[in-house]
Design a protein around this nucleic acid. Sequence first.
DNA 1: TTAGAATAGTTCTATATAGAACTATAATAA
DNA 2: TTATTATAGTTCTATATAGAACTATTCTAA
Lengths: 151, 151
Amino acid sequence: METKGGFYISQIKQLQDRIFERLLAENGIEISGGQGRILFVLWKSDQLTINEISAQTSLAKNTVSIVVDGMVNKGILTRQTNPRNRRQAIVSLTDYAKSLQTKYKTVSQQMNTLFYQGFSSEEQAAFEQFLVRILETLIKEEQTYKKTKED
Amino acid sequence: METKGGFYISQIKQLQDRIFERLLAENGIEISGGQGRILFVLWKSDQLTINEISAQTSLAKNTVSIVVDGMVNKGILTRQTNPRNRRQAIVSLTDYAKSLQTKYKTVSQQMNTLFYQGFSSEEQAAFEQFLVRILETLIKEEQTYKKTKED
DNA sequence: TTAGAATAGTTCTATATAGAACTATAATAA
DNA sequence: TTATTATAGTTCTATATAGAACTATTCTAA
């Protein structure tokens, strides 16, 4: 069978990023897609290390490091060394970031409605279960690769 | 319902790109993900304009323009002005690009097998149908936006 | 304890990506 | 025709992204 799930995923990612950033901008929220993903995980659980953010967003850790830099400069995040393990940087939300959450969620909801246009609840659930399964496979592969590389 | 399809899509995109590029590199194919997507559409139908490639990959046309530049420099593509419409650039595969296709397809197949690990054929088909529906929604939205903007 | 290994981030470099503004060409309407 | 509009790409600028190599810190085994 000729499948092209990966190609579709890339296309959807491209489009949703552009559309979502426009929606955010239209609502006065000057946050890009990559920044949004970092906020998304911090809103669920504040004070994460770079590695934890990397794991939860699937962004490379150096990417997280740099995006966090930019967000610190914009007053969205703060970064502090963990006194108990001075290798770690603990990234926290500023009050400003917290104040954005409600509005951001509203826009996310709009985006979500568009994204799942024509989908029943059951279809949404089925689709997301597929995504989670693929995600788990790829995460496992990535971890296996990292272990293999240590030789 | 709390859905996060968009977030999963971004994560999957990130991981699959890194994994696929590694697979390609391990097989001696020095082509990045974005370049691969352009080749993918050209292998299906050679001699496309920048706009056509943009539409079929969902990359912005200036992105396509720049990535094609790089691929021309690497001897993968050629770019010629269409004599019938000198605004258009016709992008074509070189013999070198054509020679890569078989090997590239083999690696794509490997990637695909990993991606759909544990999926039955029916599940793959169901999943891809969901993807196509979402893609169609987003493409329509993008087109509507572009028309609206012309005021 | 201390030398070597492991861990956590950062920096360096290069490519990917797109919005806005631009140039060149073609199509259309007066 | 010619002035206006539309189309096709490109350039400019900025951010996103990651591999490789690096620094600093902590852990571990002898």
